[in-house]
C-alpha cells in the first residue's frame, strides 16, 4: 500500500480526506484496541490532517495519542 502523502490527500475532496486518513489509522488502532478502534479513530480524526499524517509516519506518537484517547474515553465513561 502506498503511503498517504499530503499531496495525495490534498487532491481528494475535503469530505473524503478524513475518510482516507481514517482508513489508514483504523487497522493500526485495531491492532492495539480491537473493541474501541472505531471510536478511537473517530476521536483522532478531529485532529488536523497535517498532524495526522505525521502520526501515520511515527508509530510512537500515534501510540501515545491512542493511549491518550483511551484515557479520555475511560474518564468520560467513569463520569456517566
Amino acid at each position: 500500500q502506498e503511503p498517504l502523502t499530503a499531496s495525495r490527500l490534498a487532491a481528494a475532496p475535503l469530505h473524503e480526506q478524513k475518510q482516507m486518513i481514517g482508513e489508514r489509522l483504523y487497522p493500526l488502532i485495531h491492532d492495539v484496541h480491537t473493541q474501541l478502534a472505531g471510536k478511537i479513530t473517530g476521536m483522532l480524526l478531529e485532529i488536523d490532517n497535517s498532524e495526522l499524517l505525521l502520526m501515520l509516519e511515527s508509530p510512537e506518537s500515534l501510540h501515545a495519542k491512542i493511549e491518550e484517547a483511551v484515557a479520555v474515553l475511560q474518564a468520560h465513561q467513569a463520569m456517566e
Binding site: 472505531g38 480524526l45 478531529e46 485532529i47 491518550e68 474518564a75 468520560h76
Partner: peptide, 21 residues
C-alpha cells in the same frame, strides 16, 4: 494538561478493513 480529544466524537466506520476471522 487537559486532553483536546473529544470522547463524544463520531465513531469511524472503515470501508475497506475486514476483520480477520
Amino acid at each position: 494538561r487537559k486532553s483536546t480529544l473529544n470522547p463524544n466524537a463520531k465513531e469511524f466506520n472503515p470501508r475497506s478493513f475486514s476483520q480477520p476471522k
